[in-house]
Amino acid sequence: MAPIISVKDLTKTYENGFEALKGINLDIEEGEVLALLGPNGAGKTTLISIICGIANKSGGSVTVGGHDITRDFRKARDMIGLVPQEMAVEVFEKVIDTVKFSRGLFGKGKDPAHIERVLRDLTLWDKKDNRIRELSGGMKRRVMIAKALSHEPRVLFLDEPTAGVDVELRKEMWDVMRELKKSGVTIILTTHYIEEAEAMADRVGVISKGELLVVEETDSLMKSLGKKVLEIELDKPVDDVPPALAQKGVTLSPTGKLVYTYDTAAEQTGITDILADLKKAGLRLADLSTKQSSLEDIFVDLVAQQKAEEDAA
């Protein structure tokens, strides 16, 4: 199936010469949840802004549902709902009016049943006649989602949907997203929270300094996440790994620790054997520790790697 969004060699250079995007290539499949991870200023929002028509691109092309975002902007934008990062609502308006306005703006005829459904799904129906300024921060964010969903988009962009919201509300937002995914909406969300990407996304893309470093299924990232590292601190540091241990894949860390990476999901982790070998080699343990590699580590590694490559260049 053709991707619902296809980004090719997309570049963006601001007037001051800042290169926000350096040739992004990305295909997004219909119905998936894609999380874009990246530090501040990585280009996540710029990427979204270009796809949604808020910023102009410098080069490359983007299609949404096969429609070019520049040549065929009406058809492309028709399919997209956007919830931006910054809170922006018409505080003096009533909830229902502002949602109806959004629908009209996208050229859709009145559909009270759909509006009611959206507001009910977001538990806003009771507040529909309230002025937006009377709502809490979380409710205001829901209003923004309701506006984005008012015209029945097939793709929803959520730019940092849970930035600055409390834990409870974050969980609520996740429930909302899951419901949306069930209804077949493709969701692209940007986030700082690794936990959010892990919980929500089918695929994770990592952006740093305007480059897409990796796009991978969250599952396969989770698999590397399933790997654990055993660090063995010895009573007396050794210069070389004893051959029996080296055979099993044990390496020596710069600090003189023995390091063994294993898969927790495997039938045999091999830890018992290693401990036995240690004893045979006459080595005494000072300490043992294990740690799990998280998406965060992968992310940090990737960004660090990119920096190292840059420094080398």
């Binding site: 949604c52 997209i80 922006a88 018409e90 703006l105 996208f106 050229g107």
Partner: peptide
């Protein structure tokens, strides 16, 4: 006003000329 409060994003991202 929409520029000031930020709601201009909606008009910019809508299929309007």
């Amino acid at each position: 006003f929409p520029k000031f409060i930020g709601t201009i994003y909606e008009v910019q991202s809508a299929p309007v000329s």
